[in-house]
Design a protein around this nucleic acid. Structure first.
Lengths: 70, 70
DNA sequence: ACATTATGTAATGCATACCTTACATAATGA
DNA sequence: TCATTATGTAAGGTATGCATTACATAATGT
């Protein structure tokens, strides 16, 4: 699961720590998700997207199984 | 985390089993998510939304922490 | 009556998301 | 030099997503 967190943070000049604080999770959780160490929970994905005022689909890029749009 | 899976299935006349088969998870996994027993992983949320040709936000309804839109 | 399908639920087990604590490097600035 | 901030990483623990197996009820059709 790829994501655009690093760029989105940079655009806002937010550190991993400040993003973590805004969401209410640990810095390591943000770091792990941002670096693709593991996927976030759906709730955390919503929270992250919400902080950026974006949709989940605009932050996270899954491997689609079906359909031809992409 | 509320969701509209039951209605979306009904609109398409899909059983929990057939949805599970399409996605490649167990029927119980679909049942548990649909009934709000627990949240799906982000990947499963993407897969479910994709089957309905909808965005995650149109299938799952989280409790927002911030922002005033909603 | 019997089989099939759809659904809800439970137990057990494994993988993993997230936490806390801790250590490391690099950049910045007093 | 010393302190602070940002980031990457690791170990150990808890919570939870999902699989598998299994049992139950209800609806449908033969």
């Amino acid at each position: 699961m790829n994501n655009r967190i690093k760029v989105l943070r940079a655009e806002r000049d937010w550190s991993q720590q400040s993003l973590a604080d805004r969401i209410g999770v640990s810095r390591q959780a943000v770091n792990a998700v941002e670096r693709g160490k593991h996927d976030p929970s759906l709730q955390l994905a919503f929270d992250i997207a919400d902080q950026f005022n974006l949709r989940i689909e605009d932050v996270f890029l899954p491997v689609k199984k079906s359909s031809s749009e992409g």
